[in-house]
Amino acid sequence: MTPFIEVKNLTHKYSAGTPFEHTALDDVSFSLERGEFIGVIGHTGSGKSTLMQHLNGLLKPDSGEILLDGVDIWQDKKTTRQTRFRVGLVFQYPEYQLFEETVYKDIAFGPKNMGLKADEIDRRVKESAAAVGLSDEQLTVSPFDLSGGQKRRVAIAGVLAMEPELLILDEPTAGLDPAGREEILNYIDSYRKAKHATIMMVSHSMGDVARMADRLIVMNKSKIALMDTPAEVFRHADELVQMGLNIPVLTQVFMKLKQLGLPVEPVYTQAQAVKALTALKGGNADA
């Protein structure tokens, strides 16, 4: 079976042929399935953003190819344009790209560019606004009158309204407080479930990606250093630290517990930690 997205030997250089040449992606290959939640981690300059912009055809590979349902996205102009709509991209601080007079119009910008009919646009705007918790009254106000967190939701709704099959988000929760972060993450996961969409989320918050993602991609020095389930990835804690990345705090706690001699395996979510420790306590009580 052809995978949903397949990236083959992708290489990209900035300022190629000048003294400032810099390889941002170096022979990157991987594939994604529908409905997966992928977390992408790596420090600034590791090639994450370049990779994201390739997946929806904003950047053209210097070599290698990107296949969407088995078709090269650069096959012809029409396919490339179609890819923009099938792969949604939410940049960092997306609220700074709002421009329309009303929230409604701004969310409708993407669907309009797709050339959809008016009633379909209307359905999508309303559905995606609701999906990020915006009320109908808010659709008629100017996006610039909203609070920072609400603007962020409008911007995300603008991409959701294109109903992308792959939704890529670059730090969607940056600058939000814990309550706001949790809400945004929930909206994203609900969208995935509702549309059986694939999510790719870049985040610096190890706790968040570890909890949400089915698989993690760890980028380091323009290459994929690791790609596996969170459990497997965080088993390489030492390597992650060497790459300048953090490990979830709870994983650190469990590594220390193991060092102290308790029979535990590293965990990365609170639920896992509680389960492991209560089991251990129960075991002790029995003994």
Partner: peptide, 13 residues
């Protein structure tokens, strides 16, 4: 550059 990329990603031509 950033804004252009973002609007292109929303299908702006």
């Amino acid at each position: 550059d950033k804004i252009m990329s973002a609007q292109k990603a929303r299908g702006a031509d």
